[in-house]
């Protein structure tokens, strides 16, 4: 018998040519009884999926499923934005088609249903690469930030202002947060409509604008990573250069902020940006390297104050050193 969802929650899923995984995900959502509603935004798949087949193959009640369609490929960010406009529930969780929700996500939803109002709750996840070492949980890079924040344990805890910039430096995933829908709508928070790096703005604006953040050590989702596969994270093309669009957007928001939030998040964000640009440089095709350097130099020169440079040298010496080898940093 299907379980009743404990939280008034929509799960929104962008999907592109991935009907097999999508059906598996919908089957899990149906069995675990997590979502009041599911919105799939198909991002130009060929052939286009149909809602009746998805519902039948997954066991999801047809009334719970909404299928939207972008006829041409516009990316997961545009697909999530489109889904957001159709959400009718109080809460929203973005998942990728190849993610799998865990039983612990249902427990978290039960806890959130009784929690005080919050803007979003960030939860832990299992990265499939950890299974190679017979471990379960996040990659060490992410886990270290949770530990530093003092939030690595605990079913549901408020995130203190001092800890939030640490959690903001975890990988910018959209699928590890349960949002209050009105928070996203009122604040005008959206994904960037680029093919890659479309989650940066969603992630950072969420932290910058939230008044109440919760965290949970529940491992709510399994995220599958296939190195060398055809995932967008493995793309090397010129789309990567559009990383400067969300970076610029967040840098300007931090600069314009008169409140404490901007000052609090600035070192975290520019540290993240430095690490990201280093990573992009390492993955980008050779013929695009010069263009990257021109844009990165301009971004870093424009936004890094002398004080911020000192802070980054101190906080992230390895990233600073690497960036100094690749780009022209402010003197």
């Amino acid at each position: 018998m299907p379980l009743d969802p404990p939280l008034d929650l929509t799960v929104a899923i962008p999907s592109h040519d991935d009907n097999g995984n999508l059906t598996r995900l919908l089957r899990h959502l149906a069995a675990l009884g997590i979502a009041q509603a599911v919105i799939v935004t198909d991002d130009g798949s060929l052939p286009a999926p149909d809602a009746e087949t998805l519902a039948r193959d997954s066991g999801l009640e047809p009334a719970r499923l909404t299928l939207l369609r972008q006829d041409r490929v516009r990316g997961a960010g545009a697909a999530r934005n489109r889904a957001l406009l159709h959400v009718k529930t109080r809460h929203l969780l973005f998942l990728d088609a190849d993610d799998l929700p865990a039983r612990e996500l249902r427990s978290l939803c039960q806890a959130l249903a009784q929690a005080d109002p919050f803007d979003f709750c960030i939860f832990q996840h299992h990265d499939s690469r950890m299974a190679q070492d017979r471990q379960r949980g996040q990659m060490p890079f992410d886990q270290d930030f949770w530990v530093q924040a003092g939030l690595a344990q605990g079913s549901l805890r408020p995130v203190p202002d001092s800890a939030a910039p640490l959690l903001a430096q975890t990988a910018n995933y959209p699928w590890n947060k349960i949002y209050r829908t009105e928070f996203l709508l009122e604040q005008g928070i959206r994904c960037s409509e680029t093919l890659v790096h479309n989650d940066i703005a969603l992630h950072w604006q969420s932290f910058l604008r939230a008044r109440s953040i919760l965290s949970s050590a529940c491992i709510g989702v399994t995220h599958f990573v296939q190195p060398g596969g055809s995932r967008l994270t493995n793309r090397l093309d010129a789309e990567r250069l559009r990383v400067f669009e969300p970076l610029e957007q967040i840098a300007l928001e931090i600069a314009a902020g008169t409140g404490p939030a901007g000052r609090r998040y600035a070192p975290a964000f520019f540290g993240f940006a430095l690490g990201l640009l280093n990573w992009v440089q390492g993955t980008l095709a050779k013929d695009l390297q010069e263009e990257l350097k021109i844009r990165a130099d301009a971004f870093l020169q424009r936004h890094l104050s002398r004080e911020m440079c000192r802070r980054l040298q101190q906080d992230r010496p390895a990233d600073w050193q690497r960036a100094a080898e690749l780009f022209s940093l402010p003197g």
């Binding site: 089957r27 899990h28 069995a31 675990l32 799998l100 865990a102 039983r103 612990e104 299992h126 379960r136 491992i219 399994t222």
Partner: peptide, 12 residues
Amino acid sequence: LYLDSRPELPLS
């Protein structure tokens, strides 16, 4: 077996 740690297991 902690079943959440075995996402490859089908639910049915």
